[in-house]
Amino acid sequence: MAKDAQNFAQDTALLTAYANGDPDAARDLARRIVPRILGYATRILADRAEAEDVAQEVMLRLWRAAPTWRAGEAQVTTWAYRVAVNLCTDRLRAKKRRRSDALDDVAEPEDGGVTAVDGMIEADRQAALTRALADLPDRQRQAVILRHIEGLANPEIAAILHMGVEAVESLIARGKRALTAALAAQRKDLGYEEA
């Protein structure tokens, strides 16, 4: 918690320095924020090019918000995640509309984690998880990813998704149940022993 508070203070200080004209502050702040936002957007959108566009747009909005930023009102990372969630949601909706318009456009989502996993079985399992995540409703997918992959706390997720902490817990629980059900249907194919 102390480290989080320290990061929060550093992010805010860098943003203030940027707003005051410090030429190096933007680079330092971008190095802290962009990898997280890019990773999140990649996992949500399963499209690296689109994720890079989202990361750039998030940072552009942050630069524009810097002069009127009120220290203490919001954490910079929480704010950035919130913008990223909204941008990803818009892009997912647009993607679904395009898919419904052209049913043959059913690109398999890329799996950012497969290459790091040793063994074909683990790769298959991660690919199955990616597909199951992609099939979740948008809000459930965002909540599950923010909680279990990005490692954010429920109150922070609640702030990002503009909902109460209990609603976040419910969303995550429903998402995990749906994931469990999706993976259970493939237990044998994924090499899990029957219980």
């Binding site: 990773g39 984690g113 399992r125 991660q126 998880l129 599950v144 279990h148 992959i149 990005e150």
Partner: peptide
């Protein structure tokens, strides 16, 4: 699986 993915992330 989520833990593995989180470790990668």
């Amino acid at each position: 699986l989520l833990a593995q993915r989180a470790a990668f992330a």
